[in-house]
Design a protein around this nucleic acid. Structure first.
Lengths: 195, 195
DNA sequence: AACCTTGTAAAGTTTAAATTGCACAGATTA
DNA sequence: TAATCTGTGCAATTTAAACTTTACAAGGTT
């Protein structure tokens, strides 16, 4: 294996760092967000310091407007925050540096939204089903009575499911998850890396 | 509140069922899959019986080709399976009827993929970093040495994170999650629905 | 006051994803 | 063997998402 010159080392470093950013961007798609969200996350993370819209635009080669759009989305997702930098008029954005914490933010923000939307619909549908039940008379066909009953049971399952997700979200958000899945696995220490 | 006729009841039922399907489709986007995946899941689920590509195409108004594509994707995601129906030459597809189980399938399939892709990259990068470390001599600039060290630490964090996700996936897949977050919450029974 | 700076709204353009239509392979039936 | 049925590869089209350009509002500076 041949040794590397200073210049080659710099190139290697840049290439490796870029690959990490690329992969972070890629993985972010699993959360259902555009890869640019992931790219900015990776860039700011690897930069280890809050960045401005202009510096992000330069780094990505994209327009400042797009940077603004994406950063707003990231704020909404709770995976970035504004950071005050004295002496500068520009807004600076920073990201959580803990991977697992970012995972949790994305997971909980996304699912909280879903839960709330669904709980609302569930209530509305429940009312309608109740009204249907009340409309049933002797002249109502057997099939209809059955479908109403099935629908009502469906809503029960629906409610149980979103209630489960709600508790799941809380399990992550409260950090209880770490009691059961600690960040650093105590078992497999075999592959440990020495400093 | 006024009572409903038979015809109105049928319309109400259809409308309510459609809304449920729509919402299932919507929610599925949180997993980063197209809403059509969710729509087919909802349709087959509400149908309570395995369906063919043709019946799906009719139900959605989409082409059979698209149904084929989406069902293949759903098989890959482990949220649908082929079901043999004797006497029919067509393939029938069914879906898991348990919401939480579907959640777990999607969650684990998606993240397993991510973990494996990342572990591979991590190993490759680790090798390159080692080679960089070995190339360091007296004439190597201080800045470079530091960046190599930082990169190496970054890989440690990276590895710890994906290992964490790996254990998290197992936590879900093995069903241990249900020991801590049971499907039916024993606490809040207040909002209970009587039969 | 006129003049910068910074962020974003709005509308337009480009790129990528979703979807279709056609064609055809493989398997089945007649 | 020809005729039919079913699922899918592939290229073409449509639709939606990502991204850019322009313009302008709000606040800061001279």
């Amino acid at each position: 294996m041949k040794s590397l010159s200073n210049d080659q080392l710099l190139e290697e470093l840049q290439s490796a760092e870029d690959q990490i950013t690329d992969r972070i961007a890629d993985n972010m798609e699993t959360f259902g967000v555009s890869s640019t969200v992931g790219r900015l996350l990776g860039i700011i993370y690897m930069n280890r310091e809050a960045m401005t819209l202009d510096s992000l635009a330069e780094e990505t080669g994209m327009s400042k407007t797009r940077m603004s759009q994406v950063m707003r989305q990231m704020l909404a997702l709770n995976i970035a925050e504004k950071e005050f930098v004295k002496g500068s008029r520009k807004e600076h954005y920073n990201v959580e540096s803990d991977y697992a914490q970012t995972f949790i933010s994305l997971f909980t923000t996304n699912w909280k939204d879903v839960v709330s939307r669904n709980m609302t619909l569930e209530r509305r549908l429940r009312d309608r089903v109740d009204q249907m039940s009340n409309s049933v008379t002797d002249s109502t066909s057997e099939e209809i009575v059955e479908r109403i009953e099935t629908l009502s049971e469906e809503l029960d399952a629906w409610q149980a499911y979103y209630n489960w997700i709600d508790r799941l979200v809380d399990f992550f958000e409260s950090g209880k998850i770490f009691d059961h899945i600690p960040i650093h696995d105590s078992h497999k220490e075999d592959n440990h890396h020495e400093k």
